[in-house]
């Protein structure tokens, strides 16, 4: 971990938003300045709603969002936030040059030469329309804007979904470069957990509008173990502790919280789990438990 004096780039406390068929239920997230947080959950878990509330686009019913100590959506706060959404909020008929010229009207720290350099580096033609850009190029264009207005916090919503492995690797490297100076912070939502294992310092897991884990990535990996063995070796109490329990041909497999693994019969096989497996097991559990 980086420097000792940690300030919070982002603090989300008790964020609640009710929709007729969905409840974002008391979300808590904290990111210290200079770190990358992965925000993981299946589709429909509430990731985009949370990010929109952080950006001030969605108004919460309860809870507080503070960025750099200021309220979400405040103009001075959003000046410091770079946004990369799943699909950019730019009109399809605009060119990359239009995006730069218009963004430059509203960002106080805008650098037009910087934007031209970023476009050049990303291989985006300034005269290309948004409608003509591939998904990867659209992500890069938004990154170019974020890097040209001196953003201190990058908020990315599913930037890697739909990208090929090369483009995903490029994006991961860009994020690494971005946080290299320790003054920059990244919140990165995804359902492709492999992206996080190489990029994130912290991770928040969101299921059905509730945070089931928020903390250091390493702590999450150490929180669970995969367990498998004969079904008849399990007592009902053991089975109740197993998350995502599946049995086939007399053999079961699932995941247990690490602190409960010691209580299981010693002849069961326990192994480390990947983030991907944790997400899968938790999503198979009817009621994911908080860690």
């Amino acid at each position: 971990m980086k420097g000792a004096a940690m300030t919070e780039a982002l603090a989300v406390v008790g964020l609640t938003k009710r929709y007729p068929e969905f409840l974002l239920d008391g979300v808590n997230i904290t990111i210290p300045t200079g770190y990358v947080m992965g925000f993981v959950g299946p589709n429909g878990a509430g990731k985009t709603t949370t990010l929109k509330a952080i950006l001030g686009i969605v108004k919460p019913d309860a809870g507080v969002v503070r960025l750099f100590g200021g309220p979400a959506g405040a103009a001075a706060v959003n000046q410091r936030v770079g946004v990369v959404m799943d699909n950019p909020y730019y009109p399809e008929g605009w060119t990359a040059r239009d995006v730069g010229e218009m963004a430059g009207l509203f960002y106080e720290r805008w650098s037009a030469p910087g934007f031209a350099r970023q476009l050049d580096q990303f291989g985006i033609s300034a005269t290309k329309k948004i409608s003509e850009l591939s998904r990867g190029m659209r992500v890069k264009l938004q990154l170019a804007v974020a890097l040209s207005h001196g953003a201190d916090l990058l908020v990315l919503d599913e930037p890697t979904s739909g990208l090929d492995p090369v483009a995903r690797d490029e994006l991961r490297n860009m994020l690494h470069d971005f946080v290299a100076d320790e003054a920059h912070t990244v919140l990165f939502s995804t359902h492709i957990t492999q992206d996080l294992e190489r990029t994130a310092d912290y991770i928040t897991l969101l299921f059905d509008g509730r945070v089931v884990f928020s903390g250091e990535l390493e702590a999450l990996s150490n929180s669970y173990l995969r367990v498998s063995g004969d079904v008849d070796r399990l007592t009902p109490a053991d089975r109740a502790d197993i998350i995502g329990y599946r049995a086939r041909g007399g053999v079961f497999e699932g995941m247990v919280p690490a602190d409960k693994a010691a209580a299981l019969p010693p002849d069961l096989l326990t192994e480390a789990v990947t983030i991907d497996e944790i997400v899968v097991y938790l999503s198979q559990a009817k009621e994911p438990s908080h860690v």
């Binding site: 950006l55 103009a75 959003n78 936030v81 699909n87 909020y89 730019y90 009109p91 008929g93 963004a103």
Partner: peptide, 18 residues
């Protein structure tokens, strides 16, 4: 129309436009 098609009202918020 263009705003609705591209969610530009959200863009205005992210661009710090009150």
């Amino acid at each position: 129309l263009a705003g609705e098609r591209s969610d530009m009202d959200a863009l205005y918020v992210t661009w710090s436009i009150p």
